[in-house]
Amino acid sequence: MIFTQFTGEIAALFAALFWAIASVIYARVGTQISPLGLNLIKGGIAIALLLLTIALQSGGELPEFTPWVFGLLPLSGIIGIGIGDTAFFTTLNCLGPRRALLLETLAPPLTALIAFIFLGERLSLTAWGGIFLTVLGIAWVITERAAEMVGMPLRLTRGLIFGSIAALSQSTGAILSHLALTQSGISPLWSTLLRIVGGVAVLVLALPTQRLSPAALLKPLQSRRVLGIIILATFFGTYLGIWLQQTALKFTAAGIAQTLNSTSPLFVLPIAIAMGDRVSWRAILGALVAIVGVAMLFLG
């Protein structure tokens, strides 16, 4: 009964868990491959996994959906995956997984702001208090000078810029997906595929600007270790993570889905401790303040 009643909420929590796991894994190869290249490779792997799942689930039969849905979901992928994920991988390289995920908690208040401007949704004083607490908690943690990973330099300004771009892109992509999923009968599985196809398409178009040849792009994959890490992280973070995110956006309100998706920092902290990373009380309290702020935003 509880799984039927809270399908979207449970899906969002598992998406947050899988993104936390994937972010820690991606950080291990982030210095060996460019953010755009990593985003393109994991997108290609995810498309293959999704096509296999669709073939096994429905025999590859195409669903019925209107042209506007067919356009809206790839656009969501272009913004949320093509731009957002590339910016997020850059943030990982600059700040490390814990701070990068905490910066991503900007996405829920940004979603509320976009909804206010374009959908006319008004926020209560409690909600605006949640925005303040969220930003305060994020700022508290990311300005901490303690090194997060051995040998990883902290580039705060660059990380803040790309982290903000990632959060804005994720918010916009989530709203577009929510509109398509709730205004049509398309399944979360197909919406995931269309989103990722859109994201990969824009990355392919961006390749010439990065001066990345196919040989240079695929060179890191010659290492079985690097290839295995990318496949594992893609399975959790892109294939399962985005599929669960789309399920959440289908079965619950966009605000609730974004709020629960932003709980990745709560999952990444025990992962960091298990990996031997020192987590200060300041980081723990900052994460809690940010999550309380996010909860206030949508409870309001």
Score class of each variant (00 low, 15 high):
F70E: 10
T31L: 06
V141L: 15
L40Q: 05
A253S: 03
L106Y: 01
Q210H: 15
G84P: 00
L212T: 15
T31C: 07
G8V: 10
P265L: 14
F88I: 01
T157M: 14
S187G: 08
L40F: 08
A12H: 07
L110G: 02
A180W: 01
G77N: 03
D277Y: 09
S213L: 08
P214R: 03
L288Y: 10
T157D: 13
L189T: 13
G293A: 11
F65Y: 07
I142F: 15
V197Q: 03
I79T: 01
T7M: 12
L285R: 08
T182K: 04
S169Q: 03
A46T: 12
F6R: 06
F70I: 11
G137W: 00
V150N: 11
L36Q: 04
G241L: 07
G163E: 05
Q170E: 07
T86I: 06
L36W: 03
T259C: 14
L73H: 01
G228Q: 10
G82R: 01
I273K: 05
T157L: 14
M1Y: 10
S184R: 04
I229G: 01
P63E: 11
T4R: 11
A115C: 11
G43Y: 03
T172K: 02
V202E: 09
L203N: 06
W128H: 09
A215P: 12
R155C: 06
G163M: 07
G237A: 05
T259H: 05
P74Y: 03
T259Q: 07
L221E: 04
V197I: 14
Q258C: 03
L266A: 09
I196P: 06
L179S: 08
Q246N: 11
F132A: 15
Q170Y: 14
P270M: 11
S177T: 12
V289H: 10
I79S: 01
I230P: 07
V141R: 02
A253D: 10
L133S: 06
G71A: 10
R28N: 08
A257N: 00
T91K: 02
G80I: 03
